[in-house]
Amino acid sequence: MQFNSLSDFIAMGDYGAYVWSSVAIVFGALAWIVVDSVMLKSKTLKAIKQEQERAEKIRQAKQQNSV
């Protein structure tokens, strides 16, 4: 451990604001892109489902027209 106390660690030799803000931004952005990528799956599944239903409706409509 390079720091004697927790307050020393947070102060980062007077550079605390810079170091901790960059840590926060880096992990914030990483969390955002991770969440976005994970959420993408359910979004994609729903989009595919909709697309399939639409295609099915179009197919049925065509069949009815031809009859």
């Binding site: 007077d14 550079y15 810079y18």
Partner: peptide, 8 residues
Amino acid sequence: QQGDSFRI
């Protein structure tokens, strides 16, 4: 030289 700021 840069103290703790280099940790970035």
